[in-house]
Design a protein around this nucleic acid. Structure first.
Lengths: 345, 345
DNA sequence: CGATAACATGTTATCGATAACATAATAGCA
DNA sequence: TGCTATTATGTTATCGATAACATGTTATCG
């Protein structure tokens, strides 16, 4: 129970005064350049220690026009995917000496997007990581808005576009791997439970499934596919629907592990043996999928790494701009991997 | 491919000049107090619009000694729990007009903690939310450090301590509910798979199990308990161990859903029927638990709400301090609820 | 030994905004 | 009509730091 008034902030002036030097000299000591005599240095360092002085990042950012802060825009933190990405972002930015200012989108109203960007810019962030998924045309704004944003912006999990920097998992490639794996195991009647097609990632996964089957000369028509909304519940719905429209399927590629979980459960309930009668492959490799019953074959996307690479890229962009260099925008893809478990053996 | 130099920041001076008024008048217009004639207001607003001016939060924070920013310290973002809490924090702070500066801890070295706090304070955050779990004595620092932090600090998921504000789920109560539910279903040989006992939350859950059994005159000795580390894999280990040390168990209370998932799976593999031979109750109510096979009875803790309440509390604390009022520190508990599903029927 | 470079420190301007104070014009009222 | 209150706007100081410039002191070297 502490009734004493809160401690006052110690400023560079306090230190200067206590050490009997100018603020500039204190600044020199804490920034380690330039000439300061050994005795002065020690005296100042002593005072800094004693008073517990920490320079105000705020003031520093203001004069230097540089904040060592990244703005991060996320969406859907309550799901595991975005959080893992954020985790990678947090780790890496910490390592490179940047702090994070976070903004979570709740929906995709256009003015909300303006506000979010403006409030990040008002805080002098050095760069912006846009880690909200591409849904419908919710990235349309960037065409007109992007060029008058004064700091670099990098997009995560966005469809590559010329002139815009992005990092994304190669969803298409992952889906191809999943489908080819089923083909390799002799499956021919391969269904798909997709994510919402308005999501870029979902449509890429579906495209991977469809084109791989077409290339193999196998039917990949719409009856062989059902759409969920990523949630486990929707996965159950979609699976039931798929069983009706395509009763003879021998395997199914499910667009994420949560929905795949429901497929496993529902199959079990209906007495469909897995993988005997039905092979299942998921996507994401959530930690639990290894412990489903049976354990789930899935496509592993390393979202942690996605976040890390995003930070590395944007820091490069920031440094380039600092030095007045020009870096061409680039879109990077991260390759997912296939993790084979019991559900497809 | 945009080679033009990045747009320069528009400042209040630019606006003032373009509108032919002083910066103070511009400030008055954008802050809506005080007297400004209608014509001037419109002219200034026009220029603001035209130049796309946004005031620098940084400069404003500096002069006002107030940033409308909260510092958030998290740990374990790659897990779903912390992310859901963060989600609640983000939502609510957005609603109350605060931004978030995030710091993720990777471990618990003491100097790291100092650094984290200092860097938040250097950014003039108005308050700090400490959302990292209490493990071992990793909160020991707060005794000595807390009183010379110049802003309010609120702890999430920490054991209540006098004089310190916190918000936490009542883990003990949740465990009691879980155990009583099993008792009510006629179970008497009730085992427990706990989380790491160095975690406060884990030890509370275990205590709830133990004391409830003791009150009912039932043995709750150590052989009837095994410890995991929250992960699904560790749950499997712990379950196997428990089956050895306490072969006749008829039910088990598992300290989180991830580990409970492994119990379901392993039981299935061994031909133990659930809930017939073994009733299972988890903790957390992760979204997937409804779709486990069988669906999992569990204790639901609303982490989203936890985050929201934390923000509300700290904002109150901030406002109180602003007005030089004194609010006694308080520890709040959020009650969890029991969700009954197939695994315990 | 004097000129120049290296070292050491201080002074003033600045970042972008608001606070505090000052001033001028108009309005209302006794 | 003159005085005070209200309205409208400008000027200067300030937040906490660094940049840019200035100046004095001590080495170094031909």
């Amino acid at each position: 129970m502490n009734l004493s008034n809160p401690p006052k902030r110690v400023t560079i002036k306090d230190v200067a005064q206590a050490a009997g030097v100018s603020t500039q000299t204190v600044s020199r000591v804490i920034n380690k350049f330039s000439y300061v005599s050994e005795t002065t240095r020690q005296r100042v360092e002593g005072v800094v220690e004693e008073l517990g002085y920490r320079p105000s990042t705020l003031a520093r950012s203001l004069i230097q026009q540089r904040s060592y802060t990244l703005g991060v825009v996320t969406y859907g933190l309550k799901y595991i995917g975005p959080s893992r990405t954020l985790n990678g972002i947090a780790d890496q930015s910490d390592q490179l000496g940047y702090m994070l200012v976070m903004q979570e989108l709740d929906n995709f109203g256009m003015n909300r997007i303006e506000d979010v960007i403006d409030s990040l810019l008002a805080r002098q962030v050095d760069g912006i990581l846009w880690a909200a998924p591409e849904i419908g045309d919710n990235h349309a704004w960037l065409e007109e808005r992007l060029q008058n944003i004064s700091v670099p912006v990098l997009f995560l999990a966005m469809q590559p576009r010329p002139g815009i920097s992005s990092v994304a998992t190669n969803n298409y490639q992952g889906a191809v791997m999943a489908t080819e794996h089923l083909l390799a195991n002799g499956k021919r009647r391969i269904g798909h439970i997709s994510g919402p097609q308005s999501w870029w990632e979902a449509s890429e996964r579906k495209r991977g499934w469809r084109e791989t089957l077409q290339k193999a000369g196998i039917d990949a028509s719409e009856e062989r596919c059902a759409e969920g909304n990523w949630s486990s519940s929707s996965g159950e719905q979609a699976f039931l629907q798929l069983l009706e429209s395509f009763p003879y399927l021998d395997s199914v590629f499910v667009a994420n592990d949560q929905m795949a979980l429901s497929v496993l459960r529902e199959a079990h309930r209906q007495g469909i043996s897995i993988p005997g009668q039905l092979a299942v492959v998921g996507f994401d490799n959530i930690p639990e999928s290894e412990h489903f019953y049976p354990s789930l074959t899935t496509i592993s996307q390393d979202l942690q790494r996605l976040g890390e690479e995003a930070v590395q890229s944007i820091v490069q962009m920031i440094q380039a701009r600092q030095n007045n260099q020009f870096i061409a925008a680039q879109s990077r893809f991260i390759q997912p991997t296939l993790v084979i478990r019991e559900s497809s053996k």
